[in-house]
């Protein structure tokens, strides 16, 4: 089954890994995310979601980063071959 909409980082389950496809949304936000290492082709891992459902904790470039759902939705993920 191939998902209809492109998956974003916000849909990633806790402890799942994925690859960044591209960024969307406001250019300024895209730029900030890219600078933190969220560039296309990058392996990332969803570590956990905060107890109240937001923000998210992810691992990128071997460090941990917290982003809100709104920013996670700007990160499009590649559909994994698996």
């Amino acid at each position: 089954m191939i998902a209809q909409n492109p998956r974003t980082l916000a849909d990633l389950k806790a402890s799942a890994k994925a690859t960044v496809l591209s960024l969307q949304g406001e250019p300024a936000v895209q730029q900030r995310l890219a600078e933190m290492g969220l560039t296309s082709g990058r392996q990332i891992r969803m570590v956990r979601v905060a107890p109240l459902g937001d923000p998210y904790q992810i691992e990128v470039l071997n460090y941990h980063l917290s982003l809100r759902r709104r920013e996670c939705e700007c990160v499009l993920l590649a559909t994994d071959p698996a």
């Binding site: 300024a28 900030r32 460090y63 941990h64 920013e71």
Partner: peptide, 11 residues
């Protein structure tokens, strides 16, 4: 303009 919330969680 609101700045995106980007919070590093250091070890």
């Amino acid at each position: 303009a609101p700045t995106p919330f980007i919070l590093e969680l250091p070890s």
